[in-house]
Design a protein around this nucleic acid. Structure first.
Lengths: 138, 138
DNA sequence: GTACTTGCAAACAGTTTGCATAGGC
DNA sequence: GCCTATGCAAACTGTTTGCAAGTAC
């Protein structure tokens, strides 16, 4: 229960205020595995918060990114998708249904990614996008 | 020499015409390791082809993508970068200088990526973006 | 000669910004 | 009460589109 309490704490501790709009976005995002875009978030939340504006959604997403609670995914050219920041995982984009599936380490014996030094560069994070046909579309 | 002959062949074989503008973009892209954006391509080619328009650059990039000679990279939220499609490699984005470095398999003992089936999904391609500080900026 | 391509300008989509009002703490 | 956040509209950026004129083949 109240799995968004830590997020609220972090928000406040970094000097941001908790508004009903921000709380709504936090509740919407935490645990959400659909990798929604700002458009989708706004569309969905507008049902319950009719006055919610686009700029507030963007503002909140930028704040959540800043405090490390959300990660932008640049998978499509048209828009940014957002992923609640959890344990590291890779993304699988189905080219049929355009959905983004999460794949977690325990399912990914076939994947190994570098940390530390590689070819002289210092690697601090990695993002993997796999493409293909998802299990539902096959 | 004339390493772009195969590209021209492929272009023609798929029913596209070879125009001076397209040739210019092909020559600019083939072997280019800078992962330029459409803006950069246009800016650079405009010096030699002053009448070259944006829409022609975009048209040509889309054609080259269609025939598999160029691959769009969604690394930044703001714009698309283009990579001449060669042997599989991963990309390293330096968060200091914002340059994209190529890293090829022989340098990447630390990386393994899946092919075929994974967690029920059929994986056909993969894209890896590493982030950190590049060897020049360290 | 017949498509297809170009170049221009206008349209478009997603995101950001400016500013007056509202509201968290 | 102070200062940040909201909501609206307008601005902005990268990309796409419509169309008349030009050109590869």
């Amino acid at each position: 229960m109240d799995s968004f309490e830590p997020t609220i704490q972090k928000l406040r501790s970094k000097g941001f205020k908790l508004t009903p709009q921000r709380l709504a976005v936090i509740k919407y995002m935490i645990g959400n595995t659909n990798h929604p875009s700002a458009l989708t978030i706004h569309k969905d939340l507008k049902k319950r918060y009719p006055s919610l504006s686009f700029s507030t959604v963007y503002n909140t997403l930028n704040v959540l990114e800043e405090i490390g609670e959300v990660r932008p995914l640049y998978i499509f050219s048209e828009h940014v998708n957002y992923d609640p920041s959890v344990e590291p995982h890779v993304h699988f984009l189905c080219t049929e249904c355009n959905r983004i599936h999460d794949i977690f380490p325990h399912e990914t014996e076939g994947i190994r990614l570098p940390v530390g030094e590689l070819d002289g560069h210092l690697v601090t994070s990695s993002q993997v996008i796999l493409r293909g046909i998802c299990r539902d579309c096959r």
